[in-house]
Design a protein around this nucleic acid. Structure first.
Lengths: 310, 310
DNA sequence: GATGCTTACGATACCCGTAAAGATA
DNA sequence: TATCTTTACGGGTATCGTAAGCATC
C-alpha cells in the first residue's frame, strides 16, 4: 500500500470510475493507474471496484468502507504538510478562501485588506463559487475557509461559525412609483415585476419564504447570481430589485434608490466554515478571528476536531 | 512521504529515539532509517527530532504535532487491512484480546468457549497483561479488545463498556478462627494479617478505600498479582485472603472456606475497552456482544467513532 | 572502547510510461 | 468506430543493506 494507490482510489471515485481521467488528473499514465489498483486489490485480497467486463461502474461494499478511510488518510497527509509549513515559515504561505460573489464583493474587502496588512507574505487566494461548490471544495480540502450564507450548515463534515447578519432590501430606479414609498410592504412588492438572486444564492430561500408566509405569489421576472447584475437590469427599468442591503452603495449606485423598511425581509446569517479535521495554519485562524471575535482559535479548533464516522 | 517513513517516525518515538532499535523493530537497516528520516525532514522543510550532535534526544515542536497525525494515519492504514480482511473472509482471522489474569481465569472461559463454537476459524489470542499495559497495547493498536477492572476508564483514547459487576470476598483455611464468622466485618479483618492483590490489580484500590473509609489500617503482609497465588499462601496459613468472589471454587478450593457477607466490600465493575478509531472485524463485535448485551455493534461503533484531537 | 548516527556505494525491486491487444458502448 | 481497460516490456529511480567513517558517552 502506498500513497499513490490511495490517491488513485480517491480520484477514481471522484472521476466517476474513469481511469483515463484519473490518470490525467494525477499526471500519470492510464496503465499505471490500472496496475496500481490491481496491485492494491491483490494486496488486500478484495475487489474494491465493481467491474462490468473491463469497465468500472462503482464501488464494492468493502470499497465503500475503504474510501472513507482513504480520504481521512489523505487529508492527514495534507495536514502533515501544512503543519510542517506552519513551523517552517510561520507567516508565509497560502490561504485559500472560497466564497460567494456577495461576500467577496461587499463583506470581505476590508477584512482582506487588514489581513494583507498583518500577513503581507501570505498569498491569499479568493475563489468565487456557488454555495454548493464551496461545500465541495472544503470537503475535498482544496480550500481552507469557506464563507457563505447557504448550504454550509447542512454539511456535517464542516464546522461553521456566524460571521455577520444582514437582510435584503429593495432597489428601484430613480423616479420609480415605489421610490417614495418609505413604508413599503410585501403586498406592494408582489404587484411589481421583481429581479433578484437565483435559487440557492444569497438568501434567495428566505425571500421565497417571506412571500410564501404572506401568502403572496411574487412575479420574479429575472434572477441573477449577483447584485451587480441585478442592479444593472433594475437601472434599465426591467423590474424592482431585491438585493442584500449591503450591496447598495449610495454614491456608486446613484441612479438607484434603496428602500429598506425595517422588518420587510427576515435576517440572514452568513457563516464561516472549515473542514473538520483539516489542519489550519496560524494565519488562517487570524483571518477567521478578523471576521468574528467569537470564533477564536481555541473555539474553532474545538469545533473542528470533533470528528469522524464513516 | 511514504509509509515506511511514517512507521519510522512512530517507532522512533516509541523506542526512545534510538535508530538502531527502530531498525531492528522494523526489520530494516540502521542506515535506511537514518536516511528516511533525513529525507522526510528535507521534504517537509522542518527538523522533526532534536539532535545533540549525532544523537537524537527528543521531538521538536513540529515533530510533536506531526506524531499525533502520523499515528492516526498508521492506525487508518491498519484499519484498511482489517476492513479488507473482514470482507475477504468474514469468519476467519485473528482476534487479539488483552486482559488480566482474573478475567482470563474466571470471567472469560465460558465466553471464549462460546465464541470458539461460533467462530471456529478465528484465531483467538488471549494475552495476559497488567492493566497499564493493556491500555498501552490498545493504544498502539496491538490488540482489538481490552478487558480489565482498572485503568481503562481513565484513558480518553479508549471507549469502554461495562462487562459485569463483582465484589471481593474473604478466604481462610479450614479451621481458621474466622471460618465460622458468617457476619464478618472489616474491623475483624483488620486484626489479621492479610494477603491480597498488588496495587493496580483486580480492584485493590477499592479494598484500600473500604478500609480507609472505615478508618482502619489493614495489615497486608503479602500482595500478589492473581488469586491463585493468594489462595496458595492462604492455604499455607500465612494470612487471610481477600480475593474476587468468583475466584473461589468450592470443589477445587476444598481446603479453603469462603466468607462473603453482603456489603463487606463495595462492588467493582469490569469493563470492556476498544481503541477509538480502531476498526473491528465483525467477529470482534460478536465477542463483545457475548460479554454484554448492552454493548451491541451499533452502540460500540457510536462510542468508538467519537474521535480525535491531537 | 562501546554504542550510535551518517555517508558512500552497489544490487535489487518498484514505479512509470509507451505500445499493443482486448473489451465495451 | 471510438472509448476505455488490461497486459507486456523496457528504462529509470528509489529503496535497501553492507561497509566504512565519525561523533558521543
Amino acid at each position: 500500500m502506498n500513497f499513490q494507490q490511495l490517491r488513485i482510489i480517491r480520484e477514481t471515485v471522484r472521476r466517476d470510475f474513469n481511469f483515463t481521467e484519473v490518470a490525467n488528473a494525477l499526471f500519470t499514465s492510464q496503465s499505471g493507474v490500472s496496475k496500481h489498483v490491481k496491485d492494491l486489490e491483490e494486496e488486500l485480497g478484495v475487489e474494491l471496484f465493481i467491474r462490468k467486463g473491463k469497465r468500472l461502474v462503482g464501488l464494492t461494499e468493502p470499497g465503500q468502507e475503504l474510501v472513507g478511510i482513504v480520504e481521512r488518510m489523505l487529508m492527514d497527509a495534507a495536514n502533515i504538510r501544512r503543519v510542517a509549513a506552519q513551523f517552517a515559515n510561520r507567516d508565509e504561505g497560502e490561504l485559500t478562501i472560497v466564497t460567494t460573489h456577495t461576500q467577496a464583493r461587499y463583506a470581505l474587502p476590508e477584512i482582506v485588506a487588514r489581513f494583507k496588512q498583518d500577513f503581507p507574505r501570505v498569498h491569499l487566494a479568493l475563489h468565487q463559487e456557488s454555495p454548493g461548490e464551496i461545500v465541495e471544495r472544503l470537503r475535498r480540502g482544496e480550500a481552507d475557509i469557506g464563507i457563505a450564507t447557504e448550504a454550509l450548515d447542512a454539511e456535517p463534515t464542516l464546522a461553521t461559525f456566524p460571521f455577520y447578519s444582514w437582510h435584503h432590501a429593495v432597489v428601484v430606479p430613480e423616479g420609480h412609483p415605489l421610490a417614495s414609498r418609505a413604508e413599503l410592504t410585501l403586498q406592494e412588492l408582489a404587484q411589481h415585476p421583481l429581479i433578484t438572486y437565483h435559487e440557492g444564492y444569497t438568501g434567495r430561500a428566505s425571500i421565497d419564504r417571506a412571500f410564501a408566509e404572506a401568502s403572496l405569489q411574487p412575479d420574479i421576472v429575472m434572477s441573477a447570481l449577483d447584485a451587480d447584475v441585478i442592479k444593472t437590469y433594475v437601472e434599465l427599468g426591467l423590474g424592482v430589485g431585491i438585493v442584500a442591503a449591503m450591496a447598495y452603495h449610495p454614491r456608486k449606485d446613484a441612479g438607484l434608490v434603496l428602500l429598506d423598511p425595517p422588518g420587510l425581509f427576515p435576517p440572514n446569517v452568513t457563516r464561516i466554515a472549515v473542514r473538520r479535521g483539516h489542519y489550519l495554519r496560524g494565519f488562517a485562524y487570524r483571518f477567521i478571528e478578523l471576521c468574528s471575535k467569537e470564533a477564536d482559535e481555541a473555539t474553532v479548533k474545538a469545533a473542528a476536531s470533533t470528528l469522524r464516522d464513516e
